[in-house]
Design a protein around this nucleic acid. Structure first.
Lengths: 188, 188
DNA sequence: AACACCATGTAAGCTGTTACATGATTAA
DNA sequence: TTAATCATGTAACAGCTTACATGGTGTT
């Protein structure tokens, strides 16, 4: 049994929402899905090519106004079927690889000030992401009508992002005071 | 600037704690670090070979008792220096890729019962991991003396695992009632 | 004129997993 | 004797990022 690229399915998933170009998809992951997903151009374009060959998506060249051209991809019936099957398969367990945890795991090897800096930087990132998430939610609350079937799902994705980041912020706080305590101790 | 394998550094990090064989390392990631890290034999053995060539670790064949043999690896001075430098570098931001979130993102495409099943399975996994984490912490509390310099760091790693998993459990609960609500609605 | 953004794509190369292969020891 | 665990390793290849390459359009 071969591992299957998740990029394939993320592309199919995006196309299930609306037809898009490769460039659009990259933007979409960055602007809408960045909370839980990302893709690179390399992956997107090579996978699109394969998906067209397999008949799961169609490509149509479109010229709007004076702009040169743009290839818009759309899901085929077969494509949405394949997507549906994948969506129903159980979620595969992911391998955890948390670099910060690893670095702190052997924390005694580095100066307390450096550990502290790692934590503070991390904290800052999470705070920024939290702010962005909250903005995204507010935007969606306004723009998407409550009746839209996908609204609750989109919101819940952001909700997970918020809960997890809040938990990590709390942890950063705990770590900060732990390390500051150690620094004070060593100064005495 | 080439990306550098994190496996390299995870190996150096483990060896900074104590000399180990390749097999030991695999066990160690599974038993002690599984909360935030994992490695495969393929990566471990090939990286060990490179690290020996680069002079960052030494290999010694050891025969204990009647057992065949075992190659124990140890950090060299250069190795611990390289590790130290990496530890002090800022933590690189990780690419988020959460399959469950992706599947729920396009949730309206699949039956509510399937979404619910995904959530429940996920919930179960987190609960199992939480229980294991708590056991690991209890074990460490007993076995490791409070004075040990690494104790606080090890505990804090587990602490993050716990906080994050609790947050996810909370989210699972929210999702469960959301989906059950939808199921009831559709039955009316 | 320069810069940002739109738009597409390829090639190189690193990272990592999976599957396979081997063989010894120990407990049931 | 059968299975589990200890112990090491390789080969194939999947997956992904990065850097490069190209060229148009609109704005300052």
């Amino acid at each position: 049994m071969s591992r299957k690229s998740k990029t394939r399915y993320s592309i199919l998933a995006m196309l299930s929402l609306k037809p898009m170009s490769g460039y659009d998809m990259k933007q979409f992951t960055k602007e809408v899905m960045s909370n839980f997903w990302s893709e690179s151009y390399g992956q997107i374009y090579t996978n699109l090519k394969m998906l067209v060959e397999e008949g799961l998506v169609t490509a149509t060249e479109v010229a709007e106004g004076k702009k040169p051209y743009k290839t818009i991809y759309e899901l085929t019936g077969r494509g949405s079927q394949v997507l549906g099957e994948w969506l129903c398969e159980p979620v595969s367990t992911q391998v955890p690889r948390d670099e910060l945890s690893l670095k702190l795991f052997v924390g005694p090897l580095i100066p307390l000030e450096v550990s502290l800096q790692h934590i503070l930087t991390h904290r800052e990132q999470h705070e920024k992401q939290l702010a962005e998430l909250r903005k995204a939610i507010a935007r969606m609350e306004k723009e998407v009508p409550d009746a839209a079937p996908h609204k609750a799902y989109w919101l819940s994705g952001s909700r997970m992002g918020i809960l997890v980041r809040e938990a990590k912020l709390k942890w950063c706080d705990e770590m900060e005071s732990l390390i500051r305590g150690k620094i004070n101790q060593s100064k005495k």
